[in-house]
Every structure is written in structure tokens, then in C-alpha cells.
Amino acid sequence: MLYSLAGIALFCIALRAVILATAPLRAILAVNVMSSGVFLVLVALARRTPGLVADPVPHAMVITGIVVAVSATAMAIVLTQRLRANVSAPTVEDTPGAGP
């Protein structure tokens, strides 16, 4: 129970960071921390089953979730890089002396 509450706390702290984030990288990192919180809750709840063995279904979901989170993070980072390259690429308007 302590672990699932900690997972919820992690989720909420990162949620606030997502809301307030201005830099894309910060938002990406915060979403990653959010997903870690969700995984912590899932693993903690899997332990509630009676007996020694934990419920394997949430564990399988967490493994799936980690891999998907990694791929989504990579895609978001490449998207950010592309955005930055497009925004910072010099255009005709930016060239000094080209304006009227």
C-alpha cells in the first residue's frame, strides 16, 4: 500500500511538471516520470494477491508499458529535434540585410 501511494505521489508530482513545463524536453521527462509512477502502482497492486506469487498479469502489462514508453520517448525527442531544426533554420526574413 505504501508503494502504491508512492506511485500515485510520483504520478502527481510529474503531472504538475507536465502542466507547468515550457520546454519540450522537460515535458517528455515529466511524462516518463508519470509512467514510472503508474508502473509502481501496478507492481504494488500485483503484490496484493494472497500467497507468495504475485499476480503476473500486471507484471506483463508493466513490461509492455516500459517498452512502449521508451519508443514513445524516442519519437518525442526526434520530433522535438525536428521542431527545433525547423524553427532555428535561417529563412529569408531572418537574413540580415534582406528586408526592405
Binding site: M1, S4, L5, I8, A9, F11, C12, L15, V41, L45, A46, R48, T49, P50, G51, V53, A54, D55, P56, V57
Partner: peptide, 21 residues
Amino acid sequence: VFAGLAFAMLSLPAEPTGLAA
């Protein structure tokens, strides 16, 4: 949000209905 989630977590049934069995 934290209060709501924590309340939901604390009010889970004591006897879990997992799929382990």
C-alpha cells in the same frame, strides 16, 4: 487528483480479485 487517487487506492476491497489463481 492525489487525494482522489489515494482514496480510490485505500478503498480497494481487502480481498483482491486478481488473475493469479
